[in-house]
Every structure is written in structure tokens, then in C-alpha cells.
Amino acid sequence: MTDDIQSRLDSIAPLIVDGSPHAVALGLSLKALTPGRAVMGARYDESLVGDPDAGTLHGGVITALLDHACGMAAFAGFGAKDTPATLDLRIDYLRPARPGLDVTAEASCLKSHGLVAFVRATAHDGDPDDPVAIAQAAFMITKASKAAQERARRAYTEGRME
């Protein structure tokens, strides 16, 4: 069963960034995706700076990275079937990310049952024990997300048949 989920995750992995224009625009990357867990990265880039004097990344970049990583962990926690929608996302910004360093977000799905998944995540710029931000989020399978997943599955199968 776990292998089954893992093979679904592996098959969908290339779409996790490439299928999301905003993730592409921010230059996010997927580093690992296993049942209930997702690791994603954001490269330091001058075009993502929020405070030009300090040279630090904008909080919004961390927000988007954490949201995406948490969403993927929830997706993986739901058995890689339905794309969940974010219900809420709470972030503590512990310190600014150091200028020049890439940021990594590690998200774990703590629990998923029926329609709701609970996720916790940490973002760090090199040392997981010295995080820049921590996040907690809840996700839900909605009608819109179910329909979108169905379209994605169809597009994916048709793409493979060509």
C-alpha cells in the first residue's frame, strides 16, 4: 500500500513545481516526497528580496514555500489521490533568512482523516536546528480540488498515451 502511494507520488512529482505557475515563478524545487512528507527548496535570488537594505528574502517567499510544501505533505498524507485546498496557515517568523542562502521547507502530515489533514513544517537556511520559520496548517479536500484532480489525472494519462 505504501509502495503504491510512493509510486503515485513519484509519477506526480515532476508536476509539483512545473504544474504550478507561481511555484515556477518563485523558482521552488521539490527535494523529497514520501507518504505524509514533503521537502521543498527556494533558491536565494535578488528578485525575491523584500528589504533591499538588509538583502533578506521577502516573508511572502517563505509563506509561499511553506504553503506549497505543506500542501504537498497533505496531498501525500491523503494517499496522493486528491489535491487539497488550504484551510488555514499559521507562520511564526523566527528570524530573517540570511542573505545569499537558499531556504528549505520540511513539512509533515501529522494526521489525515476523511476530508481534513493537519500539517506542521519548518523552514531553515542550512541548519534544521536553527529554523527561520515554523508553520502549522490545515488542508481540506473540496469539490473544486476533487474536480481539478480528476482533470489532472485525465491530462496525465492522455499525455502518456501520446
Binding site: P21, H22, A23, T63, A85, T86, A148, A152
Partner: peptide
């Protein structure tokens, strides 16, 4: 856009 299939803006 976060998910072009809905299509919805990215939560982030």
C-alpha cells in the same frame, strides 16, 4: 496561479 486546473491563485 497555483493550480491551473481549477484555476485558483496560489495560497502563498
Amino acid at each position: 496561479v497555483g493550480n491551473p486546473l481549477i484555476p485558483a491563485l496560489h495560497g502563498g
